[in-house]
Structure formats: structure tokens, C-alpha cells
Design a protein around this nucleic acid. Structure first.
Length: 127
DNA sequence: AATTTGACGCTTT
DNA sequence: AAAAGCGCCAAAT
């Protein structure tokens, strides 16, 4: 493969501006969150585990906060381990997340928490 | 290269 | 039962 490697644009290590950090930890999280089926929710710790970081629950939240593609990543389907929702949802309000989930068919408990017993996404068991 | 920052999670008070 | 503190790990500055 010596087909004009020198001066090739492909190897250009100049300011790559096209792709974002895909292959990093965050990119994996975004992709995983996109796999959450509608009407189901996952916890930050669960996503962290799925991406290979059982202790990185915080990182997941951090990554979602930096949600690079609002509207594309269903971050509203990610909730706390106990089923409660994040305190500051970045899409307009706190109650918004709950309405979004309810609109998808997610069951809520009288305590205001998501019924994890029924709505917790089971990776691999779905489909 | 070091420091700071967080949509968390779990144990303890 | 509810509240507070500590731990954790990667990315941005």
C-alpha cells in the first residue's frame, strides 16, 4: 500500500474537524444510550457497565450532560439507580423528562420514581 | 503534566 | 426513612 501515502490527505494529522471523539469513552456512551428501546429506561451505572466502566456511572452522566446531539440521543431514558430522575434536565425543565418517559409508556410509582422493576432495560434480552 | 469537574452509586449517620 | 459523605474515572483546561 504505497499508493501515494506521502502528502495524502487521509493521513493528514492536521486539525481533524470531521469526526468527534468516536472511540473514546463518551462516544461509546452516546451509542449505548441510543440502543435503549423506547418505553424503557436504563441507569447511569448500567450504561457504564455496558461500555466497560462499572465504576464510571458519573462519567456517563458527565457525557450525557455534554450531549453533542440533542434530539438524537434519548438521554431522557437514563435515570438514577433508584429510579429517580436527574435534578436538572437540560431540555427545558425537570418535569419534562418525566412527561417524556410517560409518553413512551414508562410506568411511574406514586413516589415519583420510575418503576424500575418493570421498565429497566435488559441489554441483550431485548429484541 | 497536573488540576478541576461532574445527569452517579453505595454505605453510614 | 431521609440526608450526607466518600469513592471513582475519564475528559477539558
Amino acid at each position: 500500500m504505497s499508493g501515494a501515502p506521502a502528502g495524502g490527505v487521509a493521513s493528514g494529522a492536521h486539525h481533524d474537524d470531521g469526526d468527534r471523539d468516536r472511540g473514546g469513552f463518551f462516544g461509546r456512551v452516546y451509542d449505548m444510550v441510543c440502543q435503549i428501546p423506547r418505553g424503557t429506561v436504563a441507569t447511569y451505572g448500567q450504561i457504564a457497565r455496558l461500555v466497560g466502566e462499572p465504576r464510571g456511572a458519573r462519567l456517563v452522566g458527565y457525557a450525557l450532560h455534554g450531549n453533542p446531539q440533542p434530539g438524537v440521543i434519548p438521554c431522557h431514558r437514563v435515570v438514577f439507580a433508584d429510579g429517580s430522575l436527574a435534578s436538572a434536565f437540560a431540555f427545558g425543565g425537570e418535569g419534562v423528562q418525566r412527561e417524556l418517559l410517560e409518553g413512551e409508556g414508562v410506568a411511574f410509582l406514586p413516589d415519583g420514581r420510575v418503576d424500575m422493576r418493570r421498565c429497566r432495560w435488559r441489554a441483550g434480552l431485548d429484541a
